[in-house]
């Protein structure tokens, strides 16, 4: 083993495995990469335990995949930060908390109760819930506990590089690969807080026709009637998250005549994605007839949007300005 190789770990948090698979998109270059890097920890492909991560003396680049939803994820993230020169949040869940973020609309206790006790198909007479101590044949096999809330990686540790995508697709992976290789060859550190793919929005690369002025008279959902496959979705009253989503997916959903759901996450300068989208979408409503319609009518049309949190923050609620369900409204 050459000592010039850099050491890489790929640590999973709450993830579906798609990000791990997306790394396989490197194809044959993954073999070339082994000339430059040593992957010293990757539980998805070989049997590693958290102990193995603890026992490593140093890591050059620590890639974290998935959000923080179990206490052991938080522990792994902290160990990773301690040992690694650079920490990379790879994929939407690591960057923004991902779709699990919508779980923050319930407390941990509510979630566990619902899943393990209250669903109609559940039979659990002893009311066993993960988190309780379990000992079988004298061996402690207590399952891991959920953290109180789902969090993106940068809520636990400092992150040096973000790779956006659910999962990151070819262009982003290629860019990331170049960064890795250039670090492995020249030990050239990367710009802290760097984001791949970067700053352009999906609308910038969208192939659809955009009218001079986008006017929404009525909101439509995708199942309601035919969709024009050449015209901007927003101009058809269909909510599309293109304006607040970073371009790095090649507009694959748009090309399949489906509006953007925003899985890549927002460009870097957005503070709160839902707040920004409320600003965008509300201003388009009946923009030509504002003064003809009553204030009440305008408010009614805007409030027809069924699920603002689940629509605007579908993949990013955990990284919002207010990222948890509050108790205030009950008063």
């Amino acid at each position: 083993m050459s000592t010039n190789k850099i050491k890489i770990t790929i640590v999973p948090g709450a993830a579906c495995g798609g990000c791990d698979v997306s790394l396989a998109n490197l194809g044959e270059r993954l073999l070339e990469a082994t000339e430059l890097v040593d992957i010293v920890f990757w539980p998805t492909v070989a049997d590693f335990k958290l102990e193995d991560l603890k026992n490593l003396d140093h890591i050059d680049i620590g890639i974290f995949i998935g959000s923080i939803r179990l206490e052991k994820h938080a522990e792994a993230a902290k160990i990773l930060r301690e040992k690694a020169k650079f920490v990379v949040a790879y994929g939407t869940c690591a960057c923004y908390g991902g779709i699990f973020g919508l779980g923050n609309l319930s407390t941990r206790e509510e979630l566990l109760k619902k899943v393990y006790l209250n669903t109609p198909t559940t039979e659990n007479p002893e009311e066993k819930i993960p988190g309780q101590k379990v000992v079988i044949n004298g061996v402690d096999v207590t399952p891991p506990r959920l953290t109180e809330w789902n969090l993106p990686l940068n809520n636990i540790v400092t992150v040096d590089l973000y790779v956006q995508g659910c999962p990151p697709i070819e262009d982003s992976i290629n860019h990331f690969y170049e960064v890795l290789v250039s670090y492995a060859k020249n030990r050239k550190p990367f710009e802290k807080g760097m984001m791949i793919p970067g700053a352009k929005t999906l609308c910038d690369i969208c192939p659809r026709k955009k009218p001079e002025k986008i006017v929404i008279e009525k909101f439509r959902r995708v199942h309601e009637g035919p969709i024009d496959d050449e015209l901007c979705f927003l101009a058809q009253g269909i909510i599309c998250l293109g304006p607040i989503t970073v371009a790095g997916c090649g507009a694959s959903c748009i090309k399949a005549n489906m509006p953007c759901r925003g899985c890549l996450g927002p460009p870097a300068d957005i503070i709160d994605r839902a707040g920004k989208f409320i600003s965008t979408i509300a201003s388009l409503v009946e923009i030509e007839r504002e003064k003809e319609l009553s204030d009440e009518e305008l408010m009614r049309i805007v409030q027809e949007i069924v699920d603002p949190v689940g629509t605007f923050h579908r993949f990013t609620f955990s990284s919002g300005v207010i990222n948890k369900k509050q108790e205030d409204a009950k008063k």
Binding site: L105, A274, G275, I278, S279, I281, A282, S283, V285, D295, L298, M299, V302, Q303, I305, D307, P308, V309, F312, I322, K324, K325, Q326, E327, D328, A329, K330, K331
Partner: peptide, 17 residues
Amino acid sequence: LKRYALLKKYLEQIGIN
């Protein structure tokens, strides 16, 4: 006005009065 109407709905969903 329109942003305010939608924001109210959003706030209610995340549990803020």
